[in-house]
Design a protein around this nucleic acid. Structure first.
Length: 533
RNA sequence: GCUCUCGUAGCUCAAAUGGAUAGAGCAACAGACUUCUAAUCUGUAGGUUAUAGGUUCGAGUCCUAUCGAGAGCGCCA
């Protein structure tokens, strides 16, 4: 609209107005423009020619409300799967999970696993090349502490069990913080481990093997899979050269015997300890080197809790300062999981709560609600509760894990969204009709039908929000919205025994659409649908 | 002490990146079951978005200050 000196990118947004689907707000700011009426005419010509607009109106402040033509917009899920593909696919590494060797997965790992899996699935659906790396904490001081404790207590590392390891870890960690002799000895072991001292490597291997078996079984139970099982130990050998390189480029210098980055920051960035051994940041830098060598990637997402913000700021600024190849790096942070009273999640004894225990409690709780359910369904529902109740909250807010609330079928819960899905499955199966053949006749639709269909067309919007911000809660909330609207439609009228065949076929077709969207959304969230409940 | 994040209904949380009358879910209250699974549905009520200023046609969202909460702050990861 050059003639009026107005340049606008027309910004179409979803609206809160119940009678409409979309709104355009571009005209509002031109209320004092002398040519406003001509501009509006211009807009109207454009809108009149759009086939997807069923009707529109221009409100009092020149907000434009649009009701869309449902049939133009409704897509089969196959079409949606094509439509959501990004134009420039990227190769993205998802660094999440981060379990420690010697320590079972606990509540602190829950969100990284849930959010990581969801973002992995969502990006895969968007057509990006995805690679997940569990990034094990299998190196450094914690391992040294375990070995030192084991040596002192003459433990046979070859035959060490996961139960022993789980007992040793907190004791060793406690000794490290309280007993100076122990601390010194453990630090010495850490240093020798970094230097690949043979007997220590043997002990470390035994610990890792035992730990890994337990880890794999827990992850299997929780339905998590990883493309890469790399750990901090895998990059240990890259570190000496990396340090030498940084020294020769005058990027780091000695400070109280430790190497710090020359980048002016507050606090300073520590690259090695004063005894020459390595730190969290040292390993993470080397991990980037390792990934650059072995996998071409455009972007790395670190799905790690928000308390490590400073660490990742230091990592990212170091990567830039040290002239690592330019790639995208992002810390996808999240808040903590507290118990129902809002206190940090602990066992009765004060230790961290194991994920297997949380799973078992959830499983048993659901079993008391429906005692007749088979093991597979109980397992699927348990995992649904653990994932959905986590993903429904914005990742940056801390939330309270309240089992009673999360297993309630009334509310925004995993149980509710599964229930709606099961109802839809049953309806389609019992209809014994080829529902995919039906076309939707919008003239015959009632308010419940329209309400659901108009929600279904919003999928792409929430999908985009999730990809753009790495926030799965948009999709989790949206799944609740369509599930609720489906239940409303289902409850309002008996579909299968209805004598009005047009109505019946419409509703079955809509049910089928809902089911496909529900399944797709569950896939996005890392949830598997149950067949009965 | 310094830095960062946050403060929305009784409770737990959303809110399209600055748009219209701030939305959901619990809990509360009032209704609907010889059911295609009521583990459901329908309705009512609930708000000065911590407070005070500012920017803007327009602020929960941006800026400043105050109050309150949480987290982090070189030899742990």
């Amino acid at each position: 609209m050059k003639e009026f000196n107005v340049t606008e990118t027309i910004d179409i947004k979803l609206t809160k107005n119940e009678s409409f689907d979309l709104q355009i707000n571009n005209l509002v700011k031109h209320k004092d423009n002398p040519n406003l009426s001509k501009i509006i005419d211009n807009f109207q010509r454009e809108l009149d020619n759009e086939p997807f607009i069923k009707k529109y109106e221009i409100g009092e402040k020149n907000f434009i409300n649009i009701e869309i033509n449902l049939n133009e917009f409704l897509k089969t899920v196959e079409n949606v799967r094509n439509f959501i593909k990004v134009t420039n696919p990227k190769k993205i590494i998802f660094d999440y999970g981060g379990p420690n060797i010697g320590k079972p997965l606990h509540v602190g790992h829950l969100r990284s696993l849930n959010i990581g899996r969801s973002l992995y699935n969502v990006n895969k659906l968007a057509g990006n090349t995805v690679l997940s790396d569990i990034h094990m904490g299998d190196w450094g001081m914690p391992i040294a502490q375990i070995i030192q404790y084991g040596v002192e207590n003459k433990i046979n590392f070859k035959k060490i069990t996961i139960q022993e390891l789980e007992e040793i870890y907190p004791i060793a960690s406690d000794l490290y913080s309280k007993n100076n002799d122990f601390t010194q000895l453990a630090q010495n072991i850490n240093k020798n481990l970094n230097n690949n001292q043979k007997d220590l490597i043997t002990k470390w291997k035994s610990i890792k093997d035992t730990s890994l078996k337990s880890l794999e079984s827990t992850l299997h139970q929780l339905n998590h899979k990883f493309d890469l099982w790399r750990g901090e130990s895998d990059v240990n050998d890259l570190i000496p050269d990396m340090i030498e390189d940084l020294k020769s480029k005058n990027k780091i210098s000695l400070d109280d015997g430790a190497y710090v980055s020359d980048l002016k920051t507050d606090p300073k960035i520590l690259i090695t300890k004063s005894d020459g051994s390595y730190l969290y940041l040292t390993t993470d830098l080397a991990t980037v080197l390792d990934r650059l060598d072995n996998f071409e990637f455009d972007k790395t997402l670190y799905i790690v809790d928000k308390r490590q913000k400073l660490h990742f700021e230091q990592l990212f600024s170091s990567l830039e300062y040290f002239d690592f190849p330019t790639k995208e790096y992002e810390h996808v942070s999240f808040g903590t999981v507290n118990d129902a009273d809002g206190n940090p999640f602990k066992t009765r004894e004060g230790g961290t709560k194991k994920l297997t225990d949380l799973y078992d409690e959830t499983y048993q709780y659901i079993k008391t609600i429906n005692n007749e359910l088979d093991e597979i369904s109980l397992g699927l529902l348990s995992n649904t509760v653990l994932a959905y109740s986590d993903l429904i909250t914005n990742r940056n807010t801390d939330y309270k894990f309240d089992l009673e609330k999360f297993t309630n079928v009334n509310g925004k819960t995993g149980v509710y969204i599964q229930y709606a899905n099961v109802r839809a499955q049953k309806l389609i199966n019992d209809s014994s009709l080829e529902v995919s053949d039906f076309s939707i006749l919008s003239e015959e639709l009632d308010n419940n039908d329209k309400s659901l269909l108009r929600s279904l067309i919003k999928f792409e919007f929430y999908f985009e929000q999730t990809i753009k911000n790495n926030e799965p809660h948009h999709l989790a909330d949206y799944l609740y919205e369509i599930s609720q609207k489906f239940n409303g439609m289902y409850q309002g009228i008996n579909i299968l025994e209805n004598e009005n065949t047009v109505l019946k076929e419409n509703k079955l077709k809509i049910t089928d659409l809902f089911l496909q969207y529900s399944n797709l959304l569950m896939e996005c969230l890392g949830i598997l649908p149950v067949e009965k409940m």
